[in-house]
Structures are given as C-alpha cells and as structure tokens.
Design a protein around this nucleic acid. Structure first.
Ligand SMILES: [Mn+2]
Ligand SMILES: [Mn+2]
Length: 596
DNA sequence: ATTCGTTCAG
DNA sequence: TTCACACACTCTA
DNA sequence: GAGTGTGTGTCTCTGAACGAATGA
C-alpha cells in the first residue's frame, strides 16, 4: 500500500511500524539523509531549471565531509540566519570548528557579521545585554537593572547606533559578560538557495524540513499517490522566482511595510494558474492596505484585473468611497449581470439600493424575486450567562438536557466536510497530471482552482453515485465507514480526524438521508473552497423521527450581538430549499439582577 | 519559585 | 500559511 | 442593517529545555 513511491525514494520508507511511541531513529544523521534525498529529488527533476550556482551547490555539498554537511543542514533547519558558536552543540558532528571550516571556505557560512543592536539583543540573554550597557543620565542604574529586554535593546541602540561586528559589540567598552567575550557569531549566507530548493520540492514554503522525520516517525501521514519522474511543482524558472518574490512581499506586508513599498517589489503576473491565483490574493491584501491609507487608485489597480471574486466588490466600494457614485453603480450593474460567485451576487444585491440612491437614480424595477426564498426557522432561547463558556457549548448542554433521547454535537464544518472527504477520497487523491509532485501532500495542488471539480467530474460522479441509488440505500454508509478505518489519520484537506469517531459517523449516517448528503455535496463540489465553511454550529440526532419526520436537525447558534454571516445565510437558505432541517437559535441572557 | 512562550529535536 | 468564527465598533436609514 | 476591524482558537506532533517576566 505504501510502496507506490517511485524510484527516487523520498518519503516514508514504508512506515509500517509507525506507532505512537517515538521509536528512536537508528541513524543519528537522519536529518542529513533527508536533506540529501530532497537534494537528489530536485537534481533529478529540475536539472533544466537550476543555474550554475545551484548545480555547483549540489555537487559541492555532496563532496563535503559528513561533519560539514550535517552542520550545514542543522543550521538550515533552525530559525534565523545568525548563530552563536556556543549555541551550536551537536555531539554527533564532532568539533564544530572543524566542520565549519569548509563551509566558511565555500562562503556558505560567514563569520563575525555586522548587526544592529536590535538583532543582537535577540541573540543574547538579558544579563548579557545588561553587561553591554553603560550607565548614563537617561539610563539609571535602577532602570538598567529592572527594565525589560526590549527597553534595554532600545537603550543599546541609542548608545551605539548602526551595525557593528559581533566581536566589536562584545569586545568594546564596559564589562561584557565572559560568555559574550568568548563567543563567536556565524551567519548562514546560503539560506536563500536552500529556501529555493525547499520551494521547488514542496511547491510551497510552509512545509519545512521536519516533514520528513515527522512522517518517518508516523506523526504525520500522507496518502501515497503514484508519482512519475516528471512530476514537479514548477515548469519554468521565472515561476519559481515569482513564488519566492510573492512570499517575500507577503511577509513584508504582514510585517507592516507601507503598501507602496510592497507594490514596488511585486513580481509581474505569472502564467502558471495556481501562481496567478496566489498573485491575485496578495494583490487583494495589498489593495485592502491601500484602501486603509486612502490610496484609491492604487487599490483599484490591485483589484483589476483579478480572478478573485471579492475583488469586484472592493472595486465598487472604492468607487463609492471616492464619491464616484456613477462609476460604482455602473460597475455594480455589470457585476450583477455576470456575478463571479453566488456570494458576490448576494453582496451586490445588498449594495445596489444604496448605490442607486447615491447616484441619484431610481431603481429600474422592484424585482419581486426576493420573495422566492423560503423562510429560515428561528427560535429564541433564554440562558443564564456563564462566563468562560462559549454560547455554542451552553446551548449544546441545554439541548442535551432538554431531550434525553437526543445527542448534540458541536461540529460546525467538520462533519459534512469530513463525510464529503471520505466518500470522495479516490477522486480527491486521483493522480491527475500536475496534482501531486511530492510524497507529503495533504491534497492535490489544484484544489482551489475553478476547474478542480470539472477535471475530476467522472470520478466525483462515481463517488457520489451511491447516494442516488434509492432512498433507503445503505451503500454509502459502508463506504464511508470503510474509508474511515482505512485512511484513519491520513492528512486530507476535507477530513477533520480529530472531530470524528466511528460512533459519530454511524449515528450521522443512520440519521441523515443520503439525498440530503447528495444535495449538500453537490453544492460543495460546485466551489470547494467557498462552500467548505458556513455550516451550522450544532447537529442533533434523535433516537426516533420527530414530528417533521426527521432524525436530525442543524442549529446555528447566535449569541446576543452576533449575526448570520453571508455564507451561513447561503447554506441556511439552501437547506430550507431542499427540506434539510436547519434553524437559527438566538440566545438571550435575561438581565439577571442579584435576586435571591 | 512560578508561569508563560519560544525554540529545538526526533 | 492559515482559516473560520464571534464580537465590537462606527455610520446611516 | 451595513461595513469594518479585531481577537480567539485551531491548525501542522509532542515534550524538553531555556529564557523572560512575574510573584512570594
Ligand atoms: Mn460557529
Ligand atoms: Mn454560531
């Protein structure tokens, strides 16, 4: 089962004995082997996309002694790029100085780099920092002793502004702590190249080197999908450059860099479609930031063109905010004629009356179709206010107590998403070209694409077929339970293993008619990324059919001051339309004055 | 002394 | 690399 | 009601070790 990996042999070595016990690894240099596997994998599949420097890195690395290889890998796996010699302790690598020498000679490691006070303070302890500070008028002995570390770091920056070598920081005036004076600092200069290799292998930068060992130890499990020698995340070098640049732009945006400065560093729009989507998403975030600083034109440039449906809404809003009511109205009408998504259509419908008013026009037609929507059942529940408890849990407890024969679960999206993921497992993990390219993927790379379902239409139809074969059929139950057992714990973008148990699945599948699942799954399939969320908080199972002839109900809990979100609204409307029992439960806390 | 958060290792 | 949700605030009908 | 921003818990495994901050 696990042996469908191809020849290059990355990934779990048939982790049959993956127990919950951390079986100690036989090889103390396991991390080096894993790094080597990644290197070999990339070298085989990406030879045409590597430049001379990168190819040289691969061969130079392979020629190094193990102590140096191991040291480099250890540092690459660690956070940051600056390391104190005293913090590098690896018994299995022998003398660190010996291992470091070849790395210094290759220029992959730098020695005694320059750094500013803030960076330095992150590398040293508070007592060490204190030892570098001189008493002054503004820095009294008392503050020097009591102040918190960031304050001391600022003080040091004031006393010695700018960048200095580590040895200069530590060998200068005052009485530097002995632990500092004796220490040396290394900088890992080869890091960017290693990041690029990691990106090429994983197709993203959020999976790190530890993925290998975690899988080996059985802490993470991935579905084995057959891969071919030409499976890879990127097909041209410029796409890799773009992905790296996007990552840097996102990081600097999140770090608070001005949007103008981030925009200046944005790479051009890529051709690769998933990368294009990532590009549009970042431009959307950038646009929001431009809006906040009042740069309307720049925001508009971020929103158009864009494949992101929400970008259209933002364009309308920006026109409205810029007092360009006519432009806003015109665009809104245009979007309404061809809405990029159901949710956007809903939002535009909500905006239109206001926009007509602002533009000084009257609405063309009242549009009676609004009445077509079926009503959503609502109830109000008075509860005693319990601090430190979520209202969902309070309602769950209340309903549990209210009817002893029923069971209530607080699952939100977990249940239906998981049922979908289990039933459609073969379609989701089908080895379509380009969907899988390394052994540690939790799902296909094109999961978020518009054509994700279309590309697998026949597969999904086959998976969902059991739901349609007759009203009282049990076929889907057996399939889902079997998949639950077979794939238990294997990463999937849809299955929430932590929320599931076989008993829960049994109960759910006994109580929810397959036709209901069919309707819900069809809607999820229409847009997996947008329709994966918005499910009601609670689900309640009854021992017997209630008055409406149902054995379950869905309940969205709303505390005081909370409102239905758009996608929750859409699901509830959908449920009402298809006779799926769902309701909203508004919780009120009766003003309980202190009466006996 | 204790708590809390971060980093590292397997 | 989150994401999804609740909740709090402001402004306008 | 509509729009916006913010905080929280959950994610990716779990535990040891360390350091920072707080309290007795
Ligand atoms: Mn909820
Ligand atoms: Mn709710």
């Amino acid at each position: 089962m696990d042996s469908t990996q191809d020849q290059t042999h990355v990934g779990p070595p048939t982790a049959a004995a993956s127990s919950t016990f951390a079986a100690p690894l036989a090889d103390p240099l396991y991390y080096l082997r894993n790094f080597g596997r990644l290197l070999a994998w990339v070298a085989v599949r990406y030879d045409d996309l590597l430049n001379d420097t990168e190819r040289a890195f691969v061969s130079d690395f392979n020629a190094l002694p193990e102590a140096s290889q191991g040291l480099l890998v250890r540092l690459v796996m660690r956070r940051g790029a600056l390391f104190r010699r005293s913090r590098i302790t690896y018994p299995e690598l022998g003398d660190i100085g010996v291992g470091a020498a070849p790395l210094l000679a290759l220029g992959w490691l730098g020695e005694d780099p320059e750094l500013d006070a803030e960076t330095l303070s992150a590398l040293i302890t508070r007592p060490e920092l204190q030892s570098l500070l001189a008493e002054t008028d503004t820095l009294t002995k008392a503050t020097l002793r009591q102040a918190r570390k960031p304050v001391l770091a600022d003080a040091l920056a004031a006393q010695r502004p700018g960048d200095h070598r580590f040895s200069d920081w530590c060998g200068a005036a005052g009485a530097p702590a002995a632990s500092l004076a004796r220490d040396r600092l290394f900088s890992l200069t080869i890091m960017p190249l290693c990041e690029r290799l990691r990106l090429m292998f994983f197709g993203n930068l959020y999976q790190d080197w530890s993925t290998f060992v975690l899988t080996e130890l059985g802490h993470q499990r991935f579905e084995p999908v057959p891969l071919t020698q030409d499976s890879r995340a990127f097909t041209c070098r410029s796409d890799i450059d773009t992905a790296l640049a996007l990552h840097q732009c996102r990081e600097s945006l999140e770090a608070g860099t001005a949007p103008e400065d981030v925009a200046a560093r944005m790479p051009p729009a890529p051709t690769l479609s998933w990368l294009q989507a990532r590009h549009d998403r970042l431009r959307y975030l950038l646009g929001r930031q431009f809006e906040r600083v009042g740069n309307h034109q720049a925001a508009l440039d971020c929103y158009h063109p864009s494949a992101l449906p929400d970008a259209a809404i933002r364009r309308i809003r920006v026109y409205e905010q810029s007092d360009a009511a006519d432009a806003a109205l015109a665009l809104a009408c245009e979007v309404q004629a061809q809405p990029p998504s159901e949710e956007v259509a809903l939002q535009v419908r909500r905006m239109l009356p206001r926009l007509y008013r602002k533009a000084g026009q009257s609405r063309p037609s009242p549009e009676k179709e609004a009445q077509e929507e079926p009503a959503i059942a609502t109830r109000t529940l008075a509860l005693d206010q319990t601090p430190d408890t979520r209202v969902e849990l309070a309602v769950q407890a209340h309903l549990d107590a209210e009817m002893p024969g029923s069971r209530v679960y607080y699952l939100e999206n977990a249940l239906f998403s998981s049922l979908f993921g289990l039933l459609c497992w073969p379609a989701i993990f089908a080895p379509l070209p380009g969907a899988f390219f390394h052994p540690f993927q939790s799902g296909p790379a094109d999961l978020r694409h518009n054509d994700f379902a279309r590309r697998r239409q026949a597969l999904f139809d086959a998976c969902l077929a059991p739901l349609a074969s007759g009203q009282a059929s049990d076929e889907h139950r057996g399939i889902i339970i079997e998949r639950y057992r077979k794939h238990h714990g294997t990463q999937s973008p849809f299955v929430y293993w932590g929320a599931l148990s076989e008993a829960l699945l049994d109960e759910a599948l006994a109580c929810i008619p397959p036709t209901h699942l069919q309707h819900i799954f069809q809607r999820m399939l229409a847009s997996p990324e947008r329709h994966r969320s918005g499910f009601p908080d609670l689900i309640r199972f009854f021992a017997e059919e209630n008055r409406q002839g149902s054995r379950y109900e869905l309940i969205e809990v709303k505390g005081p001051g909370d409102r239905l979100q758009d996608h929750q609204q859409r699901w509830l409307t959908f449920f009402a339309h298809h006779g799926i029992p769902a309701s909203v439960c508004h919780v009120v806390f009766p003003a309980e004055s202190q009466q006996p």
